[in-house]
Computed example of a mutant assay.
Amino acid sequence: MSEHVYVPRMAVGLVHYPVRDRMQKTVSTNITNFDIHDIARACQVYGVEKYYIIHPMQEQLMFVERVLDHWRVGQGSKFNPMRKTALGSVRTASSVEAAMADWNQPDGITIATTARVEWAKRKYQFSELRHEMHVEKKPVFMLFGTGFGMTKELIGSCSGVLESIRGAPPQDYRHLSVRSAVSICLDRVMGPW
């Protein structure tokens, strides 16, 4: 007899616009090959339904589609079938709104990840979000910013902000790569512990 394990419904969005630069100006950032592959692999490990790469520029989205084509149907699909599997959940979107419309979970909650928790409507501890996902069975769309993080307006439009990942004392260094941050957050809210 097999035991059914509930897997919470989750999507991840990697936001390249609107994000901030070091001078706090709103900019767009370039998509990197590493972010496509590494975040897709983390999403596959933790059962994330869809991983959206969000950028308003068609050229950047076309770059993602070329990479995906290589690994899904091109030579890469024969060379590394595991990579093909991991990239199956990747989608592109021109905006956060377009990604959310595609995922189509109107009763879900949208969570921003940021060190700027003062911009939040609500602050979630990892344990609180995990409870909402696993016990209350709420779908979650989790957004991760690039550059120096998402804009105040985007963060304020989300249902809430997840507590930031703290570094070891005494420095409490908080400038992880987005790939590392995604992996840590997914393990804390989706991991089987």
Rank of each mutant, 00 (worst) to 15 (best):
M1T: 11
R9K: 10
M10R: 07
A11K: 04
A11S: 15
L14H: 00
L14D: 00
H16Y: 05
P18I: 09
V19P: 04
K25M: 15
V27E: 04
S28F: 06
S28C: 13
S28P: 04
S28W: 03
S28A: 15
S28G: 14
T29D: 03
I31M: 06
I31N: 01
I31Q: 02
T32A: 03
D38H: 12
A42W: 11
Q44V: 07
Y46G: 00
V48I: 15
V48C: 05
Y51D: 08
Y52L: 00
I54C: 07
H55N: 07
M57H: 08
Q58H: 11
Q58S: 14
E59K: 13
E59W: 08
Q60V: 10
Q60Y: 08
Q60L: 07
R66L: 06
D69E: 15
D69I: 13
W71E: 01
P81W: 10
M82A: 14
R83N: 12
T85H: 12
A86H: 11
G88I: 06
G88F: 02
S89Q: 10
V90N: 06
A93D: 02
E97T: 13
E97M: 11
A99S: 07
A99G: 05
A101T: 12
W103F: 13
N104L: 09
D107W: 09
G108N: 01
I109S: 02
I111E: 00
A112N: 05
T113A: 01
T114R: 03
A115G: 09
A115N: 09
A115T: 07
V117C: 00
W119L: 12
K121G: 08
R122M: 08
Q125M: 12
F126P: 00
E128V: 09
R130S: 05
R130I: 10
R130K: 15
E132I: 14
M133T: 05
H134K: 15
V135R: 09
E136A: 14
K138F: 14
P139S: 07
P139T: 14
F148T: 01
G149W: 07
I155K: 02
I155E: 04
S157P: 10
C158Y: 04
S159C: 11
G160P: 09
V161F: 05
A168H: 12
P169L: 09
P170Y: 06
D172V: 11
H175E: 02
L176S: 03
V178S: 00
V178P: 13
S183H: 10
C185K: 07
L186W: 08
L186R: 11
D187E: 15
D187T: 02
M190Q: 01
G191K: 14
P192E: 14
W193N: 14
